[in-house]
């Protein structure tokens, strides 16, 4: 049952703000975040009837998109294109504030996989096992990426290392 009885329209209307917030943290950039969310939602539209848990599906798809980009870019450079509609998108102010936020600025400096692990762990409160399953990596990789990501964030944000 798609969305456990919910419609696609209802899902987008009620869930897209939060998903966009996640995408902003995952990408570190409002424009890329909008592209990413649009892409994921379009795919969900196509297969809506086969998606059991749209909220989990969307989060996983966003995170995988970011880490897949990392995997591809590790082998060749790739620019992430902006859709035309960004040219006339209306700024809501909050997006710009998010871009300027200290933590988003620091996240932007992290490698995408470290960023994804940190965001899923501390924004979505996913467990290490859940992150490992969803990103197709081992639990050890999640642990090490989280540890490196936290250390890098502390340094970037000028936080004293507590040990």
């Amino acid at each position: 049952m798609p969305g456990v009885g919910g419609s696609f329209e209802e899902f987008v209307s009620t869930g897209s703000d939060r998903l966009l917030g996640l995408a902003v943290l995952l990408t570190g950039d409002r424009g890329h975040a909008e592209d990413l969310l649009q892409d994921v939602l379009e795919r969900m539209y196509v297969k809506w009837r086969r998606i059991d848990d749209p909220h989990a599906y969307a989060r996983t798809a966003l995170a995988r998109k970011v880490t897949d980009r990392w995997r591809s870019r590790a082998r060749r450079p790739r620019e992430v294109g902006l859709e035309d509609w960004h040219d006339h998108a209306v700024s809501d102010g909050a997006g710009q504030r998010a871009d300027r936020s200290r933590v988003v600025a620091a996240l932007r400096e992290l490698p995408p996989r470290q960023r994804a692990v940190i965001v899923l762990r501390y924004f979505e409160d996913w467990s290490e096992e859940q992150i490992a399953d969803q990103l197709d990596v081992s639990r050890g990789t999640v642990k090490s990426q989280a540890s490196k990501g936290l250390a890098n964030l502390r340094e970037l944000m000028g936080v004293e290392v507590p040990w």
Partner: peptide
């Protein structure tokens, strides 16, 4: 801080239409 950074972020109003068309 992560929550506060994006708490006011809003998707564009015509997102549903754009997504449906793309889908």
């Amino acid at each position: 801080e992560l929550g506060l950074a994006v708490q006011d972020v809003q998707a564009r109003e015509d997102l549903l239409g754009v997504v449906r068309e793309g889908g």
